[in-house]
Amino acid sequence: MISFTYKLYLVISEADCKGKNMIAVARQAIKGGVDIIQLREKNASVTEFTTKALQLKALADEYHIPLIINDNLMVAEHVNAAGIHVGNNDLPPAEIRREWNVANKIIGYSIEYIEQLHNEQMEAADYLGISPVFGTATKTDTVTEWGLEGITTIRQLTTKPLIAIGNMQLNNVKAVINAGADCIAVVSAICSASNPEKAAYDLKNEIIK
């Protein structure tokens, strides 16, 4: 099993950057304290996704942090990403393990139903994305809004690293960590910030203090 020691996880796309240069935003976020990054481009063609992934991979390699690709094994393989993150309706983690038979690749798996904690997909994953903790405009196709109690419940049922996502803000991340999450995943709080570096710095220090 991969050692997952990351605390601040940036989920980024071109659209989430609101007209700003995505690579510039990512660089600022990394400087501020982001230590793992995921590229999520749900509506991009494979060619567009791959181009953006290669640019982001070069940046991630420069700072020695992992790049995770959202829900596209072809892109993840092509750019030699550190891993892939999938949801309940995507290619299952157990199948990814069989198809992407490369040591030390990270597989993340979004948990939307409590029943997912008892299937082979959870066992095949390196970390679990608790999605969403709180409702968010950046992801509207979700099933369960977990809240703090949901994180605590899941924490009692698994030893896997838990990554909390969904309206993570400076005023709630510490409570989420205290509820049992290991890492905070952020979209808008960094991507839409006027100063992504400061936003990341403030979030990281709130998480680890």
Score class of each variant (00 low, 15 high):
I154A: 10
A44H: 01
A124G: 13
D141C: 06
A185T: 09
N43G: 03
P93V: 01
P132C: 07
G87V: 03
S110Y: 05
E206K: 14
E95Q: 10
Q116D: 15
S13G: 07
M122G: 05
K174I: 09
P196G: 12
A124Y: 03
T159H: 12
A189F: 09
K31H: 01
Y9L: 03
N171K: 15
E120K: 13
N178H: 06
R27C: 06
A189E: 14
N70C: 14
L67S: 08
D126R: 00
K18E: 01
I114L: 15
A200Y: 14
A58N: 10
R97W: 07
K57P: 09
N119K: 02
T158Y: 12
N205L: 11
T153D: 04
G108E: 04
G32E: 05
E48V: 12
E99Y: 03
A193S: 13
K209I: 09
N70R: 05
S13M: 08
E99M: 11
A185E: 11
A44S: 06
N89R: 13
T5F: 04
A94F: 12
A189I: 11
G150V: 14
R40A: 01
V46H: 03
T47R: 07
P92C: 04
T142M: 02
R97S: 07
Q116G: 15
V186R: 08
N178I: 11
L128C: 12
P161N: 09
N89Q: 13
K160D: 06
A179L: 06
L39F: 05
N205W: 12
I96W: 01
H85C: 14
H78C: 00
K31D: 06
T5H: 02
I177C: 13
A185D: 04
G19N: 04
R40P: 02
A200D: 11
P66N: 09
N21C: 00
L73W: 04
N89D: 15
I96Y: 12
N88Q: 15
L157P: 06
A82I: 11
T136M: 05
V102M: 15
A60L: 12
C17D: 08
F49Q: 03
A81M: 10
G135C: 10
F4K: 01
I36N: 01
I36M: 00
S194P: 13
K57A: 02
E112Y: 09
E95M: 14
L203H: 07
L39C: 04
K7H: 06
K204I: 03
I84S: 13
N167I: 05
